[in-house]
């Protein structure tokens, strides 16, 4: 890690802190009923999004999941538009039509959070095919979880990615649970990366709580894809602090509190801060400032969202087709 530039390390740390702050505040707002619908929060998994995304350009694409806020924050998403979307406001990323599960920013190559588990991989190979077809060296990072690794869509996409040598990176965030079902109760293997061999691509298992390990492994896979050498499967072992939906996460039927506390001992942000301190790159005060700045930014975004108008009722029938003329078929 010593050969990673200081500004990159600080950038990764900053992205992780912004994600966590965004998510913790969002969780409170959902619990208090201010944000409608359901939120799937990314807390605990920040090292993966930050460590991968710091390598990407705006023109590189990602496909995301139902747990997608962290991906968009790390890709450089506008927090005000994100919060406005969570609040269902007209100023949101999707004009209030998508909400948490469909948050997206096509200008940043963020091809959408997704309400369907396993929907990302086929979309990702399409974007990667397009990158290759158009003669760019852009890559597509496909984020998905252990749960999605059992969907047929993943297997079809993995096969095609390797067959066509597409510039796609399968970023498997193995947080140990498919919704509320523990990994050993939903698949017979321990390392999901084992599946990569079956498709003819490298598969690597990485500590997903260690942002630097994420950074290094993702860097290699992304460089490989940019060179035209095809896809890589990266499995990041990580952990979801909160529940599948909402905040709680402790005192639940599907896992022991001791397990949660054990994972929290290796918190990705604390781990990063310890290393940065050790290297003399960030003091305790400096870290506190990063957290405070993130909180101020998030609060500003929330204020913007709460002050924003809801969509006009007439917006219901807009944006269904690219040209409204003739579309809709009446009734």
């Amino acid at each position: 890690m010593t050969d990673i530039a200081a500004d990159v390390l600080l950038d990764i740390h900053n992205r992780m802190v912004r994600i966590r702050t965004f998510e913790e505040e969002a969780g409170k707002l959902m619990e208090s009923g201010k944000i409608p619908g359901a939120l799937h929060l990314y807390v605990g998994e920040e090292a993966v999004a930050a460590g991968v995304m710091v390598h990407l350009r705006d023109s590189d694409q990602i496909t995301s999941t139902h747990r997608g806020h962290g991906h968009l924050v790390a890709k450089g998403g506008d927090l005000q538009k994100m919060y406005a979307e969570l609040f269902g406001r007209a100023t949101g990323y999707c004009k209030g039509k998508g909400g948490s599960m469909h948050i997206s920013d096509l200008d940043l190559g963020m091809l959408g959070a997704n309400g369907i588990v396993g929907a990302g991989p086929p979309i990702a190979i399409g974007a990667a095919f397009s990158n290759k077809y158009r003669g760019t060296d852009d890559v597509t990072c496909c984020f998905f979880g252990d749960g999605a690794s059992n969907e047929g869509t993943f297997h079809e996409a993995a096969n095609m990615a390797a067959l066509y040598k597409l510039p796609v990176i399968f970023v498997c965030e193995n947080n140990g649970f498919g919704e509320f079902t523990r990994q050993e109760r939903h698949q017979a293997i321990h390392d999901i990366a084992d599946r990569a061999a079956g498709y003819g691509m490298p598969g690597i298992v990485v500590d997903g709580m260690d942002a630097l390990a994420v950074y290094e492994s993702a860097g290699e896979a992304i460089a490989r894809a940019r060179r035209g050498d095809g896809p890589t499967f990266l499995e990041y072992k990580t952990y979801r602090y909160f529940d599948h939906v909402g905040v709680r996460g402790m005192g639940v039927i599907y896992r022991e509190d001791s397990e949660v506390l054990e994972w929290r001992q290796r918190d990705p942000i604390a781990l990063m801060e310890a290393r940065l301190a050790e290297q003399g790159l960030l003091s305790a005060d400096g870290a506190a400032q990063v957290h405070e700045a993130a909180l101020a930014e998030v609060r500003e975004a929330i204020a913007f969202a709460e002050a924003s108008p809801f969509p006009e009722p007439s917006a219901l029938m807009e944006d269904i087709y690219t040209t409204a003329a003739g579309a809709g078929g009446a009734a």
Binding site: Q61, T63, L106, L111, P121, P122, I123, A124, I125, G126, A127, A128, F129, S130, N131, Y133, R134, T140, G152, T153, E156, A157, N159, M160, L163
Partner: peptide, 20 residues
């Protein structure tokens, strides 16, 4: 393509969303 309709359809979707 392989016989993989989800993959094929996703290929079209992702490509269409990115300029093709």
């Amino acid at each position: 393509t392989p016989i993989a309709e989800s993959g094929i359809m996703g290929l079209g979707l992702g490509a269409a969303a990115t300029g093709l």
